[in-house]
Design a protein around this nucleic acid. Structure first.
Lengths: 187, 187
DNA sequence: ACACTGTCACTAACAGCATTAGCCTTCTGG
DNA sequence: CCAGAAGGCTAATGCTGTTAGTGACAGTGT
């Protein structure tokens, strides 16, 4: 039995490949083991259990997303930055729907460095607006909600026809930008 | 062995109760059977398989949501209607986070009457705005994205602290209303 | 060069799950 | 009242994750 030259990273690579083709439900230790050409229990030398593997996949996706968003927002500010960020977000999800859907939902941002980093990028993009403490938090939450909601619905095929999704997303961007430009409802 | 007096509806009731306490991951035939006091295989007399049960749970949640949203939007129009709709949506999810999270993601709206009905209510609320064909579709998609994105993140504990979530949501409502009031980005 | 040690793969085994098959009791309608 | 359907059961199968124990390979100290 020659060694497979495995490593935790290689296992996550395989796991990502699995969800890319089969969706979140296909993420099983047997599938990952089969893909790397190894018996299922061998994976336990590199990964504690399935739960940890899922966690690692989530972190991987968050890292990739943060990378892309960081690039997109680089050298831009205010509306320009947010627009670029939102477009990059959707592009990533459109390229890897299974990967995005495989992220675990219960992940609290605090326990994951990648989540923290992504959140930091969001806050960075919002820096150009004059938003103090709580208002900044509200803005970031709304940005996340809009972007994530659209991403989830699109990745899961929740929208009927895929027609004109770009135009829909542009409207969403417009909504967010309008809301960020500080138009208060009453005041 | 006295009969348990089960029915498909009763099974779905139990399944909903299970996800209410244990979250989506707890939805297992064994758990549902245990809750109704029956052996696992007995469930197959009322439900085709686990996949169908999940489907039924999804439909149930969509029905409940549609009910609540319909009530909320009754007799209102335009911003008033959308505001009421969005608040009712979040209220429902906050009351039953596990239930909302248990909805299957892959559900295309076409194959489910409840989804269709909910979508109809959304479109109804948007009727007051002067939106023609595609623009109406875009608006509905954005409304869904915003509302669903916030709901998912809140239900999964994706926001750090629960503090001030109401204020955040009010900002989201403001964003949506602003976007619906027809301020075009370029034109 | 050689044993030694740790790493990494394996097989064997077990528990929990969904699912199917077959049986037996209980309701129900003619 | 009794035939048949309906709704419960146990037994058994295959897939999953997981653990324990075994053996082969690579690198290291002598």
């Amino acid at each position: 039995m020659p060694r497979a030259g495995l490593s935790p990273d290689a296992v996550v690579d395989a796991a990502v490949a699995v969800v890319d083709v089969g969706g979140p439900g296909a993420l099983t230790l047997a599938a990952v083991a089969g893909r790397v050409g190894v018996a299922t229990p061998s994976l336990y030398k590199h990964v504690r259990n399935l739960a940890e593997l899922r966690h690692l996949v989530t972190s991987r996706v968050l890292e990739e997303l943060a990378e892309r968003l960081g690039e997109a927002a680089l050298g831009r500010s205010r509306d320009d930055a947010v627009r670029a960020l939102m477009r990059a977000y959707r592009d990533y999800v459109a390229e890897h729907p299974g990967r995005y859907g495989a992220m675990e939902q219960e992940a609290a941002p605090e326990d994951d460095a990648a989540a923290e980093r992504l959140l930091g990028i969001l806050y960075g993009a919002l820096r150009g607006y004059e938003l103090e403490g709580p208002d900044l938090v509200h803005a970031a939450r709304c940005l996340r909600s809009a972007v994530h909601g659209f991403a989830v619905l699109e990745a899961a095929g929740g929208f009927g026809l895929p027609a004109d999704l770009e135009a829909s997303y542009e409207l969403l961007i417009t909504m967010v930008l309008g809301g960020l430009s500080g138009r208060r409802p009453v005041a």
